[in-house]
């Protein structure tokens, strides 16, 4: 049974701030025990990256611009991956997150085909780490074995830990405080990624979203026309070369 929870986790990605440094990718890789992607994994299009930086080149030499968009699981409110799973391994929880249950997954890969963002990854191999890296695995995160799907979880282990700690200390769970940020947000050098609770009107993400989604604001969602109702809001690049025609 899914009831409306008090929290609705989401993220704001300011594309204007993103420098494409891949810090979030590395942080995610180490936080979530993601196996090391070798060259042949990329060649076979089987590399696992819960968050990736998409790079786009714009313009002709010498006036070339690189554009970067970090893309992670959008935690759609109306997720195309969920209804296709025959074993309910992916479902929506009451905190607005799209959860992958590893022990239910049988690896049909229907969800990966359903996902328009290409953020679901299949473990084609048994994950392996060099001996020297075995002790850096995060004990709070399951190591996924061969044959199951995985994807960005908004670092649910951190959310669970912070929830527990705030209950213990009789405090209100606040985003951004006491480490309640996914690893990518903590690692982002330019604060391009902001994580928070959309149900809390005072949270930073709610305020940015409210502002950005107004007429003429910078906010947009990836593939909004598909009606996926994502929990990740993107803020457009502010282009210096384009003359400002309204507001500001």
């Amino acid at each position: 049974m899914v009831t409306a929870g008090s929290n609705k986790w989401g993220m704001v990605v300011d594309v204007d701030r993103c420098t494409g440094c891949q810090g979030c990718v590395v942080a995610c890789q180490s936080e979530n025990n993601i196996p090391i992607n070798l060259e042949e994994h990329f060649n076979q299009r089987r590399a696992i990256q819960w968050i990736r930086i998409e790079r786009y080149w714009e313009g002709e030499y010498p006036n070339v611009k690189a554009r970067f968009i970090p893309v992670m699981c959008q935690h759609c409110g109306n997720a195309p991956c969920e209804p296709v799973c025959p074993v309910y391994a992916t479902y929506h929880n009451n905190e607005g997150m799209n959860v992958q249950v590893y022990n239910r997954c049988i690896g049909t890969r229907f969800c990966a085909n359903g996902c328009p963002y290409h953020v679901r990854f299949f473990n084609f191999w048994e994950p392996e780490w060099p001996e020297s890296l075995k002790n850096q695995l995060n004990p709070d995160v399951t190591v996924r074995s061969r044959g199951i799907m995985e994807k960005c979880s908004f670092c649910v282990q951190r959310i669970q830990r912070s929830t527990r700690e705030s209950e213990r200390d009789n405090e209100v769970l606040e985003d951004g405080d006491r480490g309640l940020n996914p690893a990518c947000v903590n690692a982002c050098a330019t604060n391009a990624l902001i994580f928070g609770n959309f149900n809390d009107p005072d949270s930073k993400v709610s305020q940015i979203k409210e502002d950005a989604m107004k007429e003429g604001g910078r906010g947009y969602r990836l593939m909004e026309n598909m009606g996926t109702d994502t929990n990740v809001v993107y803020l457009k690049k502010v282009d210096q070369s384009v003359e400002v025609t309204h507001g500001h």
Partner: peptide
């Protein structure tokens, strides 16, 4: 009893 309470 949400799955993500224990399984992650």
């Amino acid at each position: 009893t949400d799955c993500a309470t224990c399984h992650y």
